[in-house]
């Protein structure tokens, strides 16, 4: 609604849009480094990025989240987001180490994303990553036999957050006064247009 509280809550939208826009570019750079990604068709690369970018960004945002004051630091004291600013984004404090990277890859290579064509190939890429993640856990977390299963469960949680984000994005982008504050890249990646 148009309450004052609602307006002030969106006052950081331009900065948030910039942050997300920057993060999308990082996600694209990250995806390009994963063996196999660039061998996919351009259409599949685009479909995977459009559907998974927000999940990777949400995962990464946990690295700048402080449990001490329950806020995200996004470049200096002037750019702090408290939990209320971004209520739906926090997904619990992830331990950020290299297993997170494998995890991000696995989310990226989900063959059941909308618009994906070469399902078999993407599934094969994900299977390979699952094997690597399991091996990584065996070596670095010998006692963590349930860790892999828990992480797979978290992928499902990320999906729900992705859906929530899509809903919120849609309602935001229908309001011209808000959508004009987004960047062209954000509009393109989160827009509904499928490649």
């Amino acid at each position: 609604d148009s309450s004052e509280e609602d307006n002030s809550r969106l006052s950081m939208l331009p900065h948030l849009a910039d942050l997300v826009s920057y993060s999308i570019q990082k996600v694209i750079g990250f995806a390009k480094m994963i063996p196999g990604f660039r061998d996919l068709t351009a259409e599949d690369q685009i479909a995977l990025l459009k559907s998974s970018a927000i999940e990777i960004i949400m995962l990464r945002s946990n690295q700048s989240f402080s449990l001490e004051d329950m806020s995200w630091s996004c470049g200096g004291p002037d750019f702090k987001y408290c939990v209320n600013d971004v209520t739906k984004v926090h997904i619990g404090s992830f331990v950020c180490e290299s297993r997170c990277l494998w995890y991000e890859c696995m989310g990226l290579f989900s063959a059941d994303r909308p618009g994906v064509q070469d399902h078999a190939r993407i599934e094969a890429l994900q299977d390979r990553l699952c094997d690597v993640l399991q091996a990584y856990i065996r070596i670095h977390h010998p006692g963590g036999r349930l860790l892999y299963a828990k992480m797979i469960q978290k992928l499902a949680d990320l999906r729900s957050l992705n859906e929530e984000h899509s809903k919120q994005y849609r309602s935001l982008s229908f309001q011209p006064e808000h959508s004009m504050q987004l960047t062209p890249l954000v509009l393109e990646v989160f827009g509904s247009e499928v490649s």
């Binding site: 570019q25 694209i28 750079g29 390009k32 351009a42 259409e43 690369q45 685009i46 990025l49 459009k50 062209p184 890249l185 393109e188 990646v189 247009e193 490649s195």
Partner: peptide, 17 residues
């Protein structure tokens, strides 16, 4: 197929070095 998503295509194509 439409040749849209121009920014994504550009970012995917560009050489990162």
């Amino acid at each position: 197929k439409k040749k849209d998503n121009a920014l994504l295509r550009y970012l995917l194509d560009k050489d990162d070095n």
